[in-house]
């Protein structure tokens, strides 16, 4: 997966979690939590969905890497290279 595809994947998962999420003015370098009103449960959903779709195991200590859209891409790119 390319960095762009990974970002789209994350947005797709977030849309499944919250169908009213507004991506219009999303800044990829700002925390998703603040911009989309996500809480810690939502991040858990993202982790669970990534495991379901791509057999990815993300340890709890790595959760901070999922903070922004760009940091998600940087963190997930090596893990999803062959996906």
């Amino acid at each position: 997966m390319t960095s762009e595809e990974i970002k789209n994947l994350i947005l797709e998962i977030i849309e499944d979690i919250d169908d009213e999420a507004d991506f219009e003015s999303l800044n990829p370098d700002e925390p998703l939590r603040d911009q989309l009103d996500l809480d810690s449960m939502d991040f858990l959903d993202i982790v669970m969905e990534l495991r379901k779709r791509h057999q990815l195991q993300i340890p709890e200590e790595d959760y901070p890497n999922l903070a922004t859209l760009n940091s998600c891409a940087v963190y997930l790119e090596p893990l999803l290279r062959n996906a």
Partner: peptide, 17 residues
Amino acid sequence: INYGVIVSNDVDSYLRS
């Protein structure tokens, strides 16, 4: 209920590892 979701994540992770 929320704790149920947190634990499900642990269980799912265990079963898929």
